[in-house]
Design a protein around this nucleic acid. Structure first.
Lengths: 194, 194
DNA sequence: CGTAAATGATATGCCGTGTATCAATAGTGG
DNA sequence: CCACTATTGATACACGGCATATCATTTACG
């Protein structure tokens, strides 16, 4: 039962492993600012990251897995921050917080949303959002709950995408007002024009 | 100077050429219902279409070109029909017409929007829409014109996508009301809640 | 029928993927 | 500082899809 510990306790060092993975993620992020994932070769990634070609596959089965690893955690982080929108009545404040966060991490999110991974990122984002919002309290009678989430999430992402694409982006306060008015309030705030 | 007409006027028959192209388009459409474009091989397309492999490249440079040829005309058609939204004040009627048209061609548009080409189709759709809407009269002061179009188009497409994905879709009248209320009216109709 | 366009079939070179192997390096524990 | 092992680098390899070229065959039109 303890064939794994002949004499000394062997603990796998994880320093280098982590460093290589970080390098791969970082490099992919850079490349995604230029072109789509399909046009990026593993050879290209490893070359820029100064890492052996074969080493790539010791960490990830393919490009897609690397992208997923890179995006999933960032999505989860942003989504967790967006979650309060479902439970508060002051959606404007939550939306403002969302835009501030995106603006602070605009390099990352510009790459994720406007780059070659946008389709995958948006798809994964919606998927996670639908999971989290499954037991949300708010829903309007005239609007199926699932469609409400789908609309709010995809619209919000599209507005953010447009925002980050601009050469001279407006302030995060300005975009937050628009985002809340177009994508959030119509779904998650009682309408006075019924 | 007239080497092109030795004796008899040679007019290229186009029957077979058109037929082959139609077969390729149709086959691609079928395959797109199952999987993404990247996972579809030219070999697969030509095999199902009962067409020689090399023949494919006599018509299209690659898969992407075939998809573009297939999607562009359909997009133009639907977009032309959507255009009145920009000029009428009764957006509900135009939206209703849009949903009716999509419902009539739901097989085609389900493949285009929910299948493996969705990203390309949506991107192309937005591109064409931005061109057409460039000299549109309507714009709200608080909302940049380009963002208005981007939001309306992408939101509408996302709502339509959700609609077509449902196993038991609601009627086109129902979805038209929602679509107009969420994506069109907030942008192209005077807001009474200002 | 005869002619030219269009196709089918096949061979070929190229490139990216993913695996396997083995020598070299780096980090850990003693 | 010395082992010892995880991790890496480099290379070779098989596999498959892409795209082109070639030539015989078929189709369509006059």
């Amino acid at each position: 039962m303890d064939q794994k510990m002949p004499t000394t306790t062997k603990k796998p060092p994880q320093k280098r492993l982590t460093r290589t993975r970080a390098a791969l993620c970082s490099t992919l992020l850079t490349l995604l600012e230029e072109k789509a994932l399909e046009q990026i070769t593993v050879k290209e990634i490893t070359a820029r990251a100064d890492i052996g070609y074969a080493t790539f596959f010791r960490h990830y089965a393919d490009k897609e897995e690397l992208l997923h690893d890179l995006a999933a955690q960032e999505i989860r982080r942003l989504l967790t921050m967006t979650l309060p929108i479902l439970y508060t009545e002051d959606t404007q404040a939550s939306t403002q917080a969302l835009c501030s966060y995106v603006w602070e991490h605009r390099v990352l999110w510009k790459a994720l949303l406007t780059g070659g991974a946008s389709a995958t990122v948006k798809e994964e984002y919606l998927k996670q959002a639908l999971d989290l919002a499954e037991d949300a309290p708010k829903a309007e009678a005239w609007l199926p709950a699932e469609l409400a989430v789908t609309f709010a999430v995809t619209s919000a992402l599209d507005i953010l995408t447009w925002w980050l694409k601009q050469k001279k982006p407006m302030s995060n306060k300005e975009i937050a007002v628009i985002l809340n008015r177009l994508a959030i309030a119509p779904v998650y705030q009682p309408q006075k024009t019924d």
